[in-house]
Design a protein around this nucleic acid. Structure first.
Lengths: 334, 334
DNA sequence: GTGAAAGCGCTAACAG
DNA sequence: CTGTTAGCGCTTTCAC
């Protein structure tokens, strides 16, 4: 049987209130008793019961994280960052992988509610009214990570997708490329798809290369789809010499496709990715990519949620974190 | 204010026990009242308070997962599998990433105890006496995943590392290779390091190739280290034509090194990995590798833990799951 | 400064 | 079948 506060009280020869006090406001207990209590706690390996506390405080000191695809390496970094912030702030972390399934997502929200998580980080997905309403009905505070909402007032942390994409494409143009394509996210169900395409368009317009604006093929999240999208793109526009991919995994799919077609990267075609996953540095060739501060994004999201939970609001509602172009081997001067 | 059982009772015009009954043994309540209660629950969006329940049942219906390195893609699959099993069995999942830090691990166990997780899956790490004792002292049931213990009686789920390594190496020998090296896990702090090396040795002895037994370089978990280990290995034994890597990430590091040295894979050197990560199929060249049933391993571990929790013991204490050699592009006939 | 007692939301005897 | 009641372990008034 786990020892309870009563066991400690008995061993220390005090009342349970005193034990409770040494745990919550030690200074209000005289030294002599306090040390006896501490000793008993130590000896019994006593640890307060989180259920009993939760019942009183109505807080679980645990945070929930909702992610669409745990096998996307992007989230490994997010999780690390968020968990580190959680230990710093005294929370536990409950992670749920929705596999992009709406019903699962909804049922995880129920689970979070039942477990009384104090707040939720909602990552990389569109905040549909349905989700918003459910979360609001459950009265669970939440923040958006790598996402944002124009429709609702929800705090968010992300990078500036439009600007980041713009810089990546501009880099390609400055390298001398004129025939440039893009592998993008399908715009439906994608938060970062549209702004990244906008960045692409802006760079093209600025460079007087508007004929490229339609050289886009779309994929959804995975390598294989990017492979096929590349096939589409290059079949329609064989003269392309550079492609901007909105995810490192897409860049890998594209390079793989090019390799199978015996097209050299970066010899004949330059490829730029997005995210700077750990893999970007392991791939052959190493990926030139727009780095997101992934770990920091996760860390910051937890901090922001904590701010929301403790102060009731948030200083910077829509926070943008710095991205950075990392030039490696998959791109080259034209 | 979240509605409580009392609110439901009032709205339905019954006592709180009746409400409790319709939730726990509906058949013991007459239809008329039951439907009124159900209606009230629906209308109020009532959900029982997990703290109150936990206090009574002494169960949290949440499981803990301890992993050493969330950025290792191996664990993405483990987590998916375990989480799917958890939703099937009615548990929530709490994941903690230790970053291979002993103190963190120990403090996560404390957190698990405080949160009263029902059981823990301890993944891919050696069960040091220190851990075993702490877990035992906390009276938290646990199972080992991709690990096992000779010292203590703890249920475990893993693949047969020795046999799997043996088959991989044997495959290389059958391909005609005679000068074979290995990139292994440092044996200290590694569970699967020694058996995989044993498998390597057994295949060599059987093939009369014992001169290869010492052609081994060690790395710890990461790509970069495997890259350096490869440098070591090939500097000492430039005649090697095949290398068995005990992890896909090592295989990628090795291939990367070879690429930098302008050595063709599989043209001049064949490389076999281990794990069959999702990445194995995305890398260039696609990796020949020993597939572990990663998702199933995670799934099974949760089931086994559940079995332990509900029945107090486990039918098959040390369970081995099937591995399988997948031949792709990184290996070739000598 | 410290103990007794009420009560957080729920379940499980125990009567009726 | 159903309502009343006694806790589960802890915090927090409220007296002393």
């Amino acid at each position: 049987m786990k020892p309870t506060i009563r066991d400690v009280a008995k061993m220390a020869g005090v009342s349970i209130s005193t034990v409770s006090r040494v745990m919550n406001s030690p200074e209000s207990v005289v030294e002599a008793k306090r040390s006896r209590v501490l000793e008993a706690i130590e000896k019994l390996q006593y640890q307060p019961n989180a259920f009993a506390r939760g019942l009183i405080y109505r807080k679980s000191f645990t945070l929930g994280l909702l992610i669409p695809d745990i096998e996307n390496m992007y989230f490994a970094g997010i999780i690390r960052g968020m968990q580190d912030a959680c230990v710093k702030l005294g929370y536990s972390l409950m992670i749920c992988n929705t596999d992009r399934d709406k019903d699962r997502l909804l049922s995880y929200i129920d689970a979070f509610r039942e477990k009384q998580v104090d707040g939720i980080v909602f990552a990389s997905d569109i905040l549909y009214p349905e989700y918003y309403e459910k979360l609001t009905a459950c009265r669970i505070p939440f923040v958006l990570l790598s996402s944002h909402s124009d429709e609702f007032e929800v705090p968010s942390v992300e990078v500036d997708d439009e600007e980041a994409a713009y810089e990546a494409v501009k880099f390609l143009i400055e390298l001398g490329h004129r025939e440039i394509g893009m592998i993008g996210f399908n715009h439906v169900n994608s938060v970062s798809g549209p702004p990244r395409y906008e960045g692409f368009v802006r760079a093209m317009k600025e460079g007087g290369l508007t004929h490229n604006i339609e050289r886009v093929a779309y994929a959804e999240h995975r390598f294989e789809q990017a492979y096929h999208a590349s096939h589409e793109l290059f079949s329609a526009h064989p003269d392309i010499t550079a492609v901007f991919c909105v995810a490192d995994e897409f860049a890998m799919g594209t390079i793989s496709y090019l390799k199978d077609r015996n097209i050299l990267v970066p010899g004949q075609v330059s490829v730029v990715g997005f995210d700077n996953l750990r893999m970007a540095n392991m791939f052959i060739p190493k990926l030139t990519t727009v780095a997101q501060p992934i770990y920091e994004l996760g860390y910051r999201a937890a901090e922001k949620l904590h701010e929301l939970l403790t102060t009731g609001s948030v200083k910077v509602p829509k926070e943008m974190m710095k991205h950075k172009l990392i030039v490696r081997e998959s791109s080259r001067q034209r």
